[in-house]
Write a protein that binds this DNA or RNA. Structure first.
Lengths: 149, 149
DNA sequence: TATTGTTATACTCTATAACTATA
DNA sequence: TATAGTTATAGAGTATAACAATA
């Protein structure tokens, strides 16, 4: 049920799907970095760590896909995280052109913190959103992501 | 119920709502700038123009809310758009601290082009998405945006 | 030849703090 | 005093092209 949609206090809700997406991304990212101020992480660093938080070892290319960025964008960011001791880059024995990204113990802690804050924001925001609406959200986002490859 | 979540062809689909949001935003923005390469517009410029495309005259602060950014972020971007003749800043007679942003004729054309490409991407991507799913998407995005203010 | 990822390079994005003008 | 927006400043995000190493 979208009761807020007809509330005049939301008169500036953007018309298009992509515009709404961009606004929500900016807004949540700002809240996220504010709540994680103690960790001293930028928005993109939070995005990267939260993706790695599942413990799955990834190559740079895979991480680029997961975050929606390019490997070249990640290089300096990964340099920074590595120099802070949050992750390591190891040559993939199976393909020595590729690096395997692994969180260190402090990195896992920071990634966990990022995911926890994300989860908390989602829980707060989506309290009155139904499972069906949430499924609809994922369907739309998945379709947009797939169409943009 | 999120049945698609268990589809192995979407194995890299991010778990969280916010992670999915970020990835979709990055991916769509990249496609958008690629398709609008002829206009020579950056992602944020496209975002701003597409918001202004409805013809509604806005203050800088209102535009910042609509785009999910801060006025300070918009200043140099608006400088650029104004220097290219795409919009004008006029003092608001009702509050002379504030500027009214108005698209010029070329600005309206560029904004229209941006909206058209956005609409086309949405139409292509969301062909098989139901109205109910789309409504769910908007409910989630609206809730996230509201919770992040 | 093609692919992975980095380096070099060039802009753009983003925000905080300090400021001006107006309310 | 408070608010709208800019300026100054600083750092992060983003990508293209060129490159080295590997496949």
């Amino acid at each position: 049920m979208i009761t807020e949609g007809s509330d005049s206090s939301f008169a500036t809700q953007p018309a298009g799907v992509i515009l709404a997406l961009q606004r929500a991304t900016h807004d949540t990212l700002r809240l996220l970095t504010a709540r994680l101020a103690g960790e001293n992480l930028s928005g993109s660093e939070i995005n990267v760590l939260a993706n790695l938080a599942d413990g799955r070892v990834r190559s740079v290319g895979e991480l680029a896909v997961d975050t929606g960025t390019k490997p070249t964008t990640l290089t300096s960011l990964l340099d920074r995280l590595a120099s802070r001791g949050l992750l390591t880059r190891e040559l993939d024995p199976a393909d020595r052109r590729s690096f395997l990204l692994t969180l260190t113990a402090p990195g896992s802690r920071a990634a966990r913190a990022a995911r926890d804050v994300m989860d908390a924001i989602e829980a707060e925001a989506l309290g009155s959103v139904s499972d069906a609406e949430l499924a609809g959200f994922h369907a739309v986002v998945r379709a947009l992501t797939a169409a943009s490859q």
